[in-house]
Amino acid sequence: MSRFKTKKGKGSPAINTSSLPDIIFMLLFFFMMTTTMREVTVMVKQDMPGATEVQKLQRKSLVSYIYIGTPKDSKLGTTARIQLNDVFANVDDIPSFIVSEREARDEADRTFLTTSLKVDGKTTMGIVSDIKQELRKSGAFKINYSTKKLRDMVDR
């Protein structure tokens, strides 16, 4: 039977790759845990101002976002607009937005809902004040002015 001897042992032995899937799966799970899904495509410019006294937003699932800034597409105008979810909106749409955001959450968590205002630095306060008034009327009192974190104000 030794007639059928193969030519084994001549070249370098193949590396065992049976653990490769496990390694890749580990990486996959790491990324699944540490990252969050991108939910909306931001259609407004977002150059947020920096601040030093910032806090991390806890529990991202309880945060609803309002984007404000001039549209990235200049055809849509040069004045600051509000973006809720994936559409441009007006200040009057905010109460219904807050209600729908609340409805989407678990009943026990609704009081912890935070509204994150992602506002472009060049925006004037008029539109931001209007939104704040609407949020007050809707009872969404917890807000967060989204900013970049600066280590020192010298970075400004």
Partner: peptide, 22 residues
């Protein structure tokens, strides 16, 4: 893995938290 790398973001949201008056 590549699908998750593309569709997710890792950025940490930071900001100044304030409470609006009723």
């Amino acid at each position: 893995l590549i699908f998750f790398l593309v569709t997710t973001t890792m950025d940490v949201d930071t900001g100044i938290t304030r409470k609006l008056p009723p």
